[in-house]
Design a protein around this nucleic acid. Structure first.
Lengths: 327, 327
DNA sequence: CTGAAAGCGCTAACAT
DNA sequence: ATGTTAGCGCTTTCAG
């Protein structure tokens, strides 16, 4: 009994505004096909304001059959600044359509994505990478009306794979013909890492080069150093790192072995974290600018949602290499 | 008309299991005070399995008057690994109580925390730092049953402030008597930064030292270099950085000015990002192990939720300094 | 242009 | 031990 103020309901607003509950809904939802006279509308809005009324989301969802919640699955915490900007842009673009974005950190134990989706009754689930068919299935059964991007749809492409390709191509352009790939230690990053690695393999294949020598690089000096020795033994001359952090680990391993970049081994990272430009030497890396992608995606969501079931696809990230001094 | 399979409802399960809807609820919710015979329970569970039934969250929330959703406000994307572990632990501990954690990245435009709270009908909102009274108010009006930690409650303390204190104390212990504080560029970090800075000021005051010389350090060589010059002019001998990233910027600025740590200027970071141990020299920093805090908090949530309104408070992070080579 | 009425799927008394 | 019955607060035909 701390003072549980009863919830303000639509009925309260109606009473204060001197109209019926239905009318309140009409003005609040801008229901099409209803012409509300300005006076009535104003009175309703005022009452809403005065009572600090908030529609009860669950009730609305239950009645309308769909929520306005969009669930974004983020691969892992600590993604690069690119993802941050993507989220910002995406969230605010969605907000303008009346949609609310919530995030779920994938890889966190306890609750799977479909569980979360069901728990919040999300009507849309969005991922950075295309979802595989099984996941899409599960998500739909969990109540998601639309899921995207989905694997194999028209227009779908993997930004991560593209980015991987860019890394390798850059190294190849600069004369490196035997590449290495630096995998991060963390298992939860594995899936995304494989996507990026696939891009590197694409580039190698396209240039008729042998497949990259893949090594896990630990976030610890000795481990990193031994990985570097591994590459040297295989006469690798350029390594693509999963991300900038991994790239720095490689660089540390090289320092430990008395090697320097790019002379002994070229290194290219991914993400362009702020630190990349501050180290000595500054790191060559691949940057995403997903801001525009965020806006696109929001629009795709809006369209899919209104134009019924069919999930319109759009993904688009625009990776590009930022050349600094390690290649 | 892509084939919108109608939702499986509790009634369907009841029909298949040959019991009443109520009974289904009873077994699914383990409703106390009901003794369901094993046979019935099994039949219900089987039907649930067979139909792949999922209770409709909104309906449940609407009827029960509370959701099982816990909303965690994360200060900013790219927090250190400590936060990640906190989230993991917190999420899985909550899951065991049937609660689902969703995250909201604060500072993202578009939707404020109360908006999100209302959109998902979260019954609990949790933050890393105590919420100020205004926010608590807003959150409660948005439908949150419990909000924590709240400012000024018994047992509340600010882990960030504590961590700031630790930074300064470490510097002071090592003979630095004129401190600087390195603020990050990003405005959205300002609030948290001020919390950490307050801890540094506490320590200075406690040691009867002048207040720290506060400077914003840009993530760019020239800016960082000029900040460093600023400190040197004020004969600062040790600087506490907002986080490890900022610390690296300071280090870069020092390099630019031909200074080295800790000889010319001691630097201590915060977060202990993986890179901290890989640089040359490795960075002295403060690490959080919030895993246990995550579990504690989950328990506090569970208790608060069952024991009615009163929000039990618990926060607790356990920062400690990791001494490496920059101080 | 506005209101009345029928649910959405579930929980929680209250019977039985 | 199980079933019956009201709603939870809102959307949405369908009448006035």
């Amino acid at each position: 009994m701390t003072g549980s103020a009863k919830r303000v309901t639509r009925a309260d607003v109606a009473r204060v505004a001197g109209v019926s509950p239905t009318t309140v809904s009409f003005v609040l939802n801008d229901t099409p096909g209803q012409s509300i006279p300005p006076g009535t509308r104003r009175r309703v809005l005022e009452a809403v304001e005065r009572l600090d009324y908030r529609p009860h989301a669950s009730a609305r969802t239950l009645a309308a059959g769909r929520s306005n919640v969009v669930l974004l699955s983020i691969p892992h915490l600590s993604p690069g600044p690119g993802i941050t900007r993507f989220v910002e842009e995406f969230a605010s673009a969605l907000a303008q359509t009346g949609l609310t974005l919530i995030t779920h950190l994938a890889g966190v134990p306890g609750r799977s994505l479909p569980d979360v989706c069901a728990a919040v009754d999300a009507s849309v689930v969005v991922g950075i990478e295309p979802f595989d068919p099984g996941t899409v299935q599960a998500l739909r059964r969990a109540g998601a009306d639309i899921v995207l991007p989905a694997e194999g749809e028209a227009g779908t492409y993997s930004p991560m794979r593209h980015a991987g390709r860019l890394q390798a191509e850059h190294l190849i352009e600069h004369g490196r013909r035997r590449l290495g790939y630096a995998l991060p230690e963390d298992d939860r990053l594995r899936k995304m890492a494989e996507e990026r690695l696939a891009g590197v393999e694409d580039a190698c294949a396209a240039a008729s080069l042998p497949a990259p020598a893949v090594l896990v690089v630990e976030t610890e000096l000795d481990g990193a150093a031994s990985a570097v020795r591994g590459w040297i033994e295989e006469s690798v001359t350029g390594v693509c790192a999963y991300n900038d952090e991994t790239a720095f680990a490689v660089l540390a391993g090289m320092r430990e072995n008395g090697r320097t970049a790019p002379a002994d081994l070229a290194v290219i990272g991914m993400d362009d974290i702020p630190l990349a430009r501050l180290t000595d030497p500054p790191l060559t890396t691949v940057r995403f600018d997903l801001r525009e992608a965020g806006r696109h995606l929001a629009q795709a969501v809006a369209v899919s949602l209104s134009s019924g079931e069919p999930h319109l696809t759009t993904a688009a990230g625009f990776p590009r290499v930022i050349r600094r001094s390690t290649v």
